[in-house]
Structure formats: structure tokens, C-alpha cells
Simulated assay, not measured.
Amino acid sequence: MRIHIIGGSGSGKSYIAELLSDKLHIPHYDLDNIFWDHQSNEYGVKAPGDERDRRLREIIGLDSWIKEGVYRSWVAPSFDAVDKIVVLMTPLSVQEERIWERYEERIADIVPNKKRETLEGIHNLLAWNKDYNLTKLPNLIDHWDYKDKRTLVRDNLDLLELQLM
């Protein structure tokens, strides 16, 4: 089974990907770990394109996986291989609350952190996420070629009850 989970930042992609991975016994991949250069001293630096493309192709070549990430155009070639695309439609207010909580936990070293986030970066993320949820995601849903593979979910925990195949 091949599943791709998309949704705004703080929508619960990583959380539900991990739960589904445990339930279905298939590996999951956080595309942020491939797309961004976590070795950089600055926040928001992309990994080299050829390296992230190679790593994405390796995942796509596997028999089963759960990928999660907001990326659309970069991962477009993999949508042909996917069995199910899950779109998390978590309310924007919930996402924004989670973004702040995650930032505060990382700054306080409560949770492991590969990212070098800044307050300015969080404000930029919140602005980007608002635009994504109010403009880009609805446009994607209305005009996407993969409607037959798509499942819209308002509460990510509802995914555990769905038959994905």
C-alpha cells in the first residue's frame, strides 16, 4: 500500500503517518527530512535538488510506504504510484495552535529538534500556512487530477477508522 498525506503545517500529518505506519506495518517518511537541509546553520535552506530527487525516487520504488508532506509539485511524479492521497482539512485555528506549541517545545528543548527555527521563521510559516489553507489547498482539491485516489479528512484520527483500500 502506498499512501501520501498532505495538509497544512500543524494539520497532523506526521502524527497520523506514524500511527498509520504502526497500524499497517509499513514505513513512513517525513518529506521535510528530505526537502530541507538540516545541516545548514540557517533555517529554511533547501537540500540540493538532485539529492532530494534521488531520495524521493528511492521511496517511490518501494512496495509500500506512507509519505507525508505538504509538497505538491516536487512530489508530483509519485502521485501516479500512490494508492491513496489523504488530504487533512484540520481547522486553521488548530493548525496555528499546534505550530506555536511545537515551536515553544523545540525552543525549550522539550522535543528533539533538527530545525533551527526562529521567531521570524514561525511568523513566515504562519502566513504561508494561512495562504495554503485558504487559497492553495482549496484550489488543489477543486482542480486535481487525482480525485479518484483522494480522501478528505477533517480530523486526522478518523483515518484510523477508514478503509484506505
Rank of each mutant, 00 (worst) to 15 (best):
4 H>D: 04
5 I>M: 05
6 I>E: 02
6 I>F: 07
7 G>V: 01
7 G>Q: 08
8 G>A: 13
10 G>I: 04
10 G>P: 13
11 S>K: 01
11 S>I: 01
12 G>W: 00
12 G>C: 00
12 G>E: 00
16 I>M: 06
17 A>P: 07
19 L>Q: 10
21 S>N: 04
22 D>S: 10
24 L>F: 12
25 H>C: 09
26 I>M: 01
26 I>F: 01
28 H>D: 01
29 Y>P: 03
30 D>T: 08
30 D>S: 11
31 L>D: 00
33 N>C: 04
35 F>D: 05
36 W>V: 00
38 H>F: 12
41 N>I: 09
42 E>R: 15
47 A>K: 09
50 D>V: 07
51 E>C: 11
52 R>D: 05
56 L>M: 11
56 L>D: 00
58 E>K: 14
58 E>C: 09
59 I>L: 14
59 I>V: 15
60 I>T: 02
61 G>C: 06
61 G>F: 10
63 D>N: 11
63 D>L: 05
63 D>I: 03
64 S>T: 07
73 S>W: 04
74 W>C: 01
74 W>Q: 12
76 A>V: 12
82 V>G: 05
85 I>Q: 04
87 V>D: 06
88 L>P: 05
89 M>I: 10
91 P>C: 11
92 L>V: 15
94 V>C: 15
97 E>W: 07
97 E>Y: 10
97 E>L: 09
104 E>K: 06
106 R>F: 02
108 A>K: 09
108 A>P: 05
111 V>T: 11
113 N>W: 00
114 K>E: 11
115 K>T: 11
116 R>L: 14
118 T>D: 06
122 I>E: 10
125 L>C: 02
126 L>T: 10
127 A>K: 15
127 A>V: 13
127 A>S: 14
128 W>Y: 13
128 W>H: 10
130 K>S: 03
132 Y>N: 08
132 Y>R: 06
134 L>P: 08
138 P>I: 02
142 D>Q: 15
143 H>F: 09
143 H>S: 12
147 K>W: 03
148 D>N: 06
150 R>G: 13
151 T>P: 02
152 L>N: 05
152 L>G: 00
153 V>K: 00
153 V>G: 02
154 R>C: 06
154 R>Q: 12
154 R>W: 08
155 D>I: 00
155 D>S: 03
159 L>A: 05
159 L>K: 02
163 Q>D: 13
163 Q>R: 12
165 M>Q: 07
165 M>I: 06
